[in-house]
Amino acid sequence: MSPGKVFGCLADGVEVHSMSLATRGGLSVEVMTYGATIRSLKAPSAEGLVETILGFERLSDYEADKTYQACIVGRTVNRLRQASFRCDDAVWQVTRNEGPNHLHGGAKGLSRRVWRADARPSDEAPLVLRYVSPAGEEGYPGVLAVEVTLSLPEAMTLQIDYKAEVDAPCPVDLTHHLYFNLDQTPGGDLLDHSLGIRGDEILHVDEACLATGLRLPVAGTLFDLHRPQPLSAILSRKHPQLTQIGLNQSWVLGADTGLDTAPAATLYAPRSGLELALYTDQPCLQAYAGLSRAVAAWGAVALEPQGFIDAVSQPAFPSPWLKPGQVYRRTSRYRFQNLGEA
């Protein structure tokens, strides 16, 4: 009934553990207590188990990382304008960690904390990680108690359930920042991957990638991915919202997407034959294809189910506020298939 094995020690000497989650003939997952980070997510293919996400071999690399490799992000994911928000006539100033703005929960957020893992009877049992964020951490109001459960409801499906409660009103929006590449082999190329997203609109953002409150229809643009397109084709086109680093957009998901309906996104690698279908009950999906070979040899695309960007500042967006007595619940499912050679 151990919480896992020691993966290493942080610079301050705190131990970090890693745990396995696996089913026979299915996915093999490794999770760390540091940032509730998914260090490895392997799926079976014709060539054996294939690593599908990026990560590091050493804990020190995770400590130094600034790209949010596969960790949880929050209390709020994405960006908050001027790192502040108003509640009951009080202005809350949270950490500025991207110029004057707030990104992914702050300098440490939930991503750089050591979580507590429940003991389990076996590697097939769901893995539960918990963290209590004290009042004032990163400038947020109130105490936030978070519980993340990772499970394998099917051999080829990873499910992540998020649960949170507060003792004072606080904006809450949680996700995992997984960078995917389904063909990390010599000769493999992220640009060969086909990406599909079921969204009719993207959120308009300014030069700082902050939402302006506008929504742009995707019809007739490179962002219309109802029919999956190779990333090479997507990134070869031009659009005022396409950033210098590539895709960094948030799609508003259609009403026909959900946990038990159509996937929010699909990603397919023709060489490995692996396809990922992402199901979520979140209203938006951020796709970020800016992690180049200068950072990771294989390149990667991050798929981040989440709420609306900077919803605390945009009254037209659904409210991100969680109040005492309410329970925040969100779920994402990552379902893999081996479609064989294209």
Rank of each mutant, 00 (worst) to 15 (best):
A208K: 13
A208N: 14
R96I: 00
Q314T: 05
F336M: 10
R237C: 11
Y279E: 09
F7H: 13
N97L: 12
E138L: 04
S60F: 00
T149C: 14
G13E: 06
A119D: 12
H104E: 02
A269W: 06
E275I: 00
A211E: 06
E15P: 05
E15N: 01
A145L: 00
P318E: 07
V218M: 03
P44S: 08
L276R: 12
P228A: 12
G325W: 09
D88H: 12
G25M: 11
E47F: 11
R198A: 14
I202Y: 03
D260S: 13
T52C: 14
W298R: 00
D310C: 04
N181S: 10
G4C: 09
F180S: 07
A43R: 02
D88E: 15
E98V: 08
Q337V: 02
S272T: 14
F85K: 10
S84M: 09
G105P: 07
L110C: 09
A342F: 01
R333T: 03
P121Y: 02
W92N: 02
Q82E: 15
V301D: 01
W251S: 01
Q249M: 11
H17K: 15
T221P: 03
T149P: 03
G187W: 01
R24L: 13
K238S: 14
G106T: 07
P315R: 03
D12E: 08
P44E: 10
H17Y: 11
Y62I: 06
A125T: 09
S20Q: 14
E201N: 10
W92Y: 15
A155D: 11
A287T: 15
R79Q: 08
T67H: 10
T266I: 12
T212Q: 05
A145E: 14
Q249P: 00
H102P: 07
L339F: 00
V31C: 13
R24Y: 04
A83M: 10
P153R: 04
G106W: 03
A287G: 05
Y62G: 06
G325F: 06
R112M: 08
A208G: 02
A262E: 13
R333A: 11
K163S: 14
P318G: 06
Y34G: 04
A287H: 01
A211G: 15
H177C: 08
L152P: 09
L231D: 06
A262G: 02
N181P: 07
W115P: 11
P153D: 10
D167V: 01
R293V: 05
G273C: 08
R75W: 08
L339N: 14
H193E: 11
T212M: 05
Y62V: 06
R335T: 14
D224G: 04
N181Q: 08
N101C: 04
T67V: 10
S18D: 12
N97T: 08
K66Q: 14
L27Q: 09
L158E: 08
S45T: 13
V128M: 03
A294L: 12
E304L: 13
